[in-house]
């Protein structure tokens, strides 16, 4: 039992790790303090607490740049991320269910096609996609971005779901089938609820990728009122140059939603990333 006792060595380890963690968060400390200091003080005393914190800078940053306010960008990011994640879950889980349960050669081939899709460089397809989306009226609006992300992240989604479904015992489904339930009922009542853990993983992984993506919205949404947060911050830096307090206020505003979400849902989040590894 001695292994897990809290000894003075454990205490030392704890202190050491806490110190290292504090060091890890130094960039965030610099971010917040610099944002509320006058522009000139940012460099002269980078570690000092601001004498007279100027929170007004956040109001100014919230106004955004010539390309729209950060509030509008936040809304766009939310709509695009939530829309894409919901579409991914709906279409991905049902597809994975079929792929996993059908099995056999066709199932394996389709599965492999999805897996390859993870490795293929989507960058190669951007210009053809842009042209096609333009013709369909899907450039510069939410629907197009949702469709784009749903397509681009479908391989990862199906991959995660399929692995999970394959490990699910069929007993419940077979029992339901014996009871005379159709496929739809079985999927919605029996399978989908069992998929909850991996649904969480899919939502978090794809959600983060979409939320943080920079290049696609830069290309597909530039010049519209629907730019997402990373593009808005980028434009902001382009316009306000080296006014670090203003830029850091914008950066802080842009990372706050994710950081907040992280603090609220960290258990689920950590499980999502580590989820597939036990055993």
């Amino acid at each position: 039992m001695g292994l897990f006792r809290y000894s003075w060595r454990t205490f030392l380890r704890e202190m050491l790790l806490l110190a290292l963690a504090a060091l890890w968060w130094l960039p965030f400390y610099i971010l917040t303090t610099t944002s509320v200091k006058p522009s000139s003080e940012g460099f002269t005393s980078p570690f000092q607490l601001p004498g007279h914190p100027d929170l007004g800078i956040y109001a100014q940053a919230w106004q955004g740049s010539g390309n729209g306010s950060l509030g509008q960008a936040l809304e766009s990011s939310l709509i695009i991320t939530i829309g894409s994640v919901m579409a991914l879950i709906a279409l991905g889980s049902s597809a994975a269910y079929v792929v996993a349960r059908r099995g056999g050669r066709p199932g394996n081939v389709v599965y492999l096609l999805f897996v390859l899709g993870i490795i293929l460089p989507y960058q190669l397809g951007i210009v053809p996609l842009y042209a096609a989306f333009r013709r369909l009226g899907l450039v510069g609006n939410y629907a197009g971005m949702v469709l784009l992300y749903t397509g681009l992240l479908m391989p990862l989604t199906v991959f995660l779901y399929t692995g999970f479904v394959r490990a699910l015992p069929r007993d419940y489904e077979e029992a339901a089938q014996v009871d005379g339930a159709g496929h739809g009922r079985i999927f919605f009542r029996v399978v989908f609820p069992l998929l909850r853990p991996v649904t969480g993983t899919v939502a978090i992984l794809t959600g983060l990728i979409i939320w943080n993506d920079f290049f696609l919205p830069l290309v597909f949404l530039s010049g519209t009122a629907y730019i997402t947060l990373p593009v808005a911050v980028y434009s902001f830096v382009g316009e306000y140059g080296a006014q670090w307090n203003l830029i850091f206020a914008a950066v802080a505003i842009s990372i706050l939603p994710v950081l907040g979400f992280f603090l609220l849902a960290q258990r689920q989040l950590i499980r999502s990333f580590g989820g597939g590894i036990k055993g």
């Binding site: 740049s65 842009y130 333009r134 013709r135 450039v139 830069l218 290309v219 382009g238």
Partner: peptide, 19 residues
């Protein structure tokens, strides 16, 4: 609309190529 200088040529070209 204002596009940051560093990426302006790329953004413009992509849009033109896409019609």
């Amino acid at each position: 609309s204002y596009v940051p200088i560093a990426t302006y040529p790329q953004v413009l070209l992509t849009q033109l190529r896409g019609g």
